[in-house]
């Protein structure tokens, strides 16, 4: 069984967003790039499952759509423990474009895992789109995934609870928090080994994006916080009731 993890290259979550080019783009200079947090959790869980599978899971591959600049992030995926990497050589245009590209390579895998969203465009779309391109089932909001023998059970979050879903390969798991405790951090040995692991570059397919991000804005600055004295809590209640009118 082979697992494919879709890794998105995103700005570090603490990045202060600045705009560039007359607000037509987000400034990339000075940004620290990381593996999208949910994708990192997916990768960690895939490696845990592989290690516990007694050889049934033969490989964990990472795939990213992007130019050569995304390779450091992909190498980090290899350092964490992925066996090999595929970079689809194209600038991501939108989720549809990215999913269509990944679908070309994902056909050869039994389980595809993606994070529930990317922390940049927050569209929660690539995993679901990919499953439709591949015409396979997908389970979304997955917070647990267990494989015993050939039996695969995933837990998905629903409103106010969760469901355990039994699913056969091939399928796409769209994962969120809970799928594993903590993302793995690359060890020195992993970092050394990652340099020698294969990172294959494949050409992009001809795909037309369906959406276009035409311009950006920064949110309006918030008015200053109104401070209430700690000795006068009832003043807060009165403000919430009479001024903000939320009580």
């Amino acid at each position: 069984m082979k697992i494919l993890i879709c890794l998105s290259n995103v700005p570090d979550t603490t990045t202060k967003i600045k705009l560039a080019g007359d607000n037509s783009a987000v400034e990339k200079a000075g940004v620290q790039w990381i593996i999208n947090p949910w994708d990192e959790l997916a990768l960690t869980r895939a490696l845990e499952l592989k290690e516990a599978s007694g050889g049934a899971i033969t490989s964990v591959t990472v795939v990213t759509v992007g130019g050569a600049d995304v390779e450091p992030t992909m190498r980090k995926g290899l350092a964490i423990g992925a066996d090999d990497a595929i970079r689809i050589d194209a600038e991501p245009k939108d989720a549809y474009y990215v999913a269509a590209q990944i679908a070309e390579v994902a056909k050869d895998f039994d389980i595809v895992m993606t994070g529930i969203e990317s922390s940049d465009y927050n569209s929660s779309a690539v995993g679901g789109m990919l499953s439709e391109f591949l015409n396979v089932p997908s389970v979304s909001s997955v917070s647990k995934m267990e494989i015993e023998g050939g039996d695969i059970n995933v837990t998905r979050e629903i409103d106010g609870g969760s469901e355990i879903v039994n699913v056969a390969t091939p399928f796409v798991a769209i994962v969120q928090k809970g799928i594993t405790k903590e993302p793995r951090i690359p060890a020195m040995r992993g970092i050394m080994m990652a340099r020698k692991k294969p990172l294959n570059v494949v050409a992009a397919a001809e795909v037309e994006a369906l959406t276009e991000f035409v311009s950006y804005e920064l949110p309006a600055a918030k008015a200053a916080c109104k401070m209430v004295d700690a000795e006068n809590v009832s003043e807060l209640v009165s403000l919430l009731k009479n001024e903000a009118k939320v009580l």
Partner: peptide
Amino acid sequence: NAGKAIAPRLSVKMKAGVIAG
């Protein structure tokens, strides 16, 4: 949860662009 699971599939099925959120 439901919209996030369905909308992307629908997008590919209908070849219709999606704006999420």
